[in-house]
């Protein structure tokens, strides 16, 4: 299971931020860290790199999350060859099946 650490910059609007926080807290894959200044650290444990990628895309579409920076990752559980990217997920992967 990949594990990633993120630094999220949250919105300055109270309502948007609260909504985002609720969303994050409801996600069982996430462990929330400290609130630091305008940001917050989050640890994500997902089933595959694609889930990570989806998570990131979802965050970018959440109005209460201004930025999502990946600061650390660990893919050491992933045995080589055990992960096959499903075809058609992204243009990059299509070029390199």
């Amino acid at each position: 299971m990949p594990m990633t650490a993120w630094l999220l910059t949250l919105s300055e609007h109270d309502d948007l931020r609260r909504e985002a926080m609720a969303l994050l807290a409801a996600d069982p894959r996430l462990t929330l860290g400290d609130r630091l200044g305008p940001g917050m650290s989050v640890i994500a444990e997902t089933c595959s790199p694609d889930d990570d990628s989806d998570l990131w895309l979802a965050w970018l579409q959440t109005p209460g999350i201004v930025l999502a920076d990946l600061v650390w990752s660990d893919f050491s559980d992933l045995e080589p060859g055990t992960y096959d990217a499903p075809a058609g997920r992204s243009p990059r992967r299509e070029r390199n099946p």
Partner: peptide, 8 residues
Amino acid sequence: AIEAQAFP
């Protein structure tokens, strides 16, 4: 309820 839920 959202705030209550918001934290594990």
